[in-house]
Design a protein around this nucleic acid. Structure first.
Length: 279
DNA sequence: CCTGAAACCTGTCTGC
DNA sequence: TGCAGACAGGTTTCAG
C-alpha cells in the first residue's frame, strides 16, 4: 500500500494513534523477532537483535515512502514496498519465547509494556534498516513534494534538464520522493499531460499545472487516508476518487472518453487520450 | 544518459 | 474444476 499518502497515514497513526493503531511514541523496545531474514536489509540479524533492546522510540516521521523511527541511539526505517503493513497490538506468547505471529508477519518489535509492532508483508519485498546515520537509507532521496522546497520554479528548471518520459521521471525517487504508480497517473491526468511526454519538452504553463496537480493529488490522498485496493491495506478511501488509475475502459471524468492503459517503464499506466494528448 | 528486461515474492482474478 | 497466464501500490541490477 505504499505511496506517500498511505505511508503518511500510517506514520501519523504510529505517532498520534488512530483507529486500530495506538501511538508507539515513548515506548521502550524490549526485543525483536525476525521471521524472514531478507526483510532486514541492514545490519546483520545478530547486530540488529543485539542493538535494538532498551531503545525508546522518541519520534515517528516519514521521508519519501519510508517510515522513520527515531530511537535512543539509532534510526529504524521501514519500507513497505508493494504489500507491507504495520499493526500494533498486545503480544500473545507462543510456547517458544516468541510472540504468536500471523501469516506473513516478517518482523516483530516487542515493547516493554507487552505490546508489539508487527511488520506484515505478503510479498516479502519490504525492508527494514537500523542505522546510526540516516543518510545511509534516505541520503539519495529527492525533494519532498509537499515541502516548501518543491516549488513550481524548481520543477520547471529540473524538467528542462531531463530527456526522460515524464511518468518515469516522476516515479524516480531520487527526483521526487513519494510518488508511486497511482498518484503519478492521477497527477498527470489532472495536469492534462501525456505520460510519455519528454520532460524537457513540457512548457512552463504545463509544468506549473503539473506542480499544482502533484500537490493536490497527494493532499487529497492524505485527506482520504490513502487508497485501499485488493487485499492490501484498508482504511483509506481514495480509491473512490480515482480519475484514471485502474479505470481502463471506463469514461474519463472530465470528457467521457474511454480511459486507455499502456505500459510506461514497465508500469501499468492509465490516461485519457483526449485530455492528455501526446502533442 | 536512457530504456527495457529480469529478479525479488505471494496471491487473486480471468479465460480457456 | 483445473490450470496457465496476467497482473498487483516498489526498487535494484544489469545489458544494450
Amino acid at each position: 500500500m505504499p505511496e506517500l499518502p498511505e505511508v503518511e497515514t500510517i506514520v501519523r497513526a504510529l505517532r498520534e494513534g488512530r483507529g486500530d493503531i495506538p501511538s508507539v511514541k515513548g515506548r521502550k523496545i524490549a526485543a525483536a523477532w525476525l521471521f524472514w531474514q531478507r526483510t532486514l536489509q541492514h545490519p546483520s540479524a545478530e547486530e540488529f537483535l543485539a542493538a535494538i533492546p532498551d531503545q525508546v522510540i522518541s519520534q515517528v516521521t516519514r521521508r519519501g515512502k519510508l517510515i522513520w523511527f527515531h530511537l535512543t541511539r539509532s534510526h529504524l526505517f521501514l519500507h513497505l514496498r508493494m504489500s507491507g503493513d504495520v499493526r500494533v497490538e498486545p503480544m500473545v506468547w507462543g510456547g517458544d519465547q516468541s510472540p504468536t505471529a500471523q501469516k506473513h508477519d516478517r518482523l516483530v518489535i516487542g515493547f516493554s509494556d507487552g505490546w508489539g509492532m508487527y511488520f506484515n508483508d505478503t510479498r516479502k519485498f519490504g525492508r527494514a534498516w537500523l542505522v546510526n546515520n540516516p543518510d545511509l537509507v534516505i541520503g539519495n532521496l529527492g525533494l519532498e513534494p509537499l515541502s516548501d522546497e518543491f516549488t513550481a520554479g524548481w520543477l520547471y528548471r529540473n524538467l528542462q534538464q531531463s530527456n526522460r518520459q515524464i511518468k518515469t521521471l516522476l516515479l524516480d525517487q531520487t527526483f521526487l520522493a513519494g510518488l508511486g504508480n497511482i498518484y503519478t497517473d492521477e497527477a498527470l491526468h489532472l495536469a492534462k499531460i501525456h505520460p510519455n511526454r519528454i520532460a524537457s519538452k513540457i512548457d512552463a504553463n504545463a509544468s506549473r499545472a503539473l506542480w499544482h496537480s502533484i500537490r493536490e493529488v497527494l493532499k487529497s490522498g492524505i485527506d482520504s487516508h490513502g487508497a485501499s485496493i485488493d487485499w492490501v491495506y484498508k482504511g483509506g478511501d481514495f480509491q473512490n476518487k480515482f480519475r484514471v488509475y485502474r479505470r481502463t475502459g471506463l469514461p474519463c471524468p472530465e470528457c467521457g472518453s474511454v480511459i486507455q492503459r499502456i505500459l510506461v517503464g514497465q508500469r501499468s499506466t492509465h490516461f485519457c487520450p483526449l485530455c492528455q494528448p501526446i502533442l
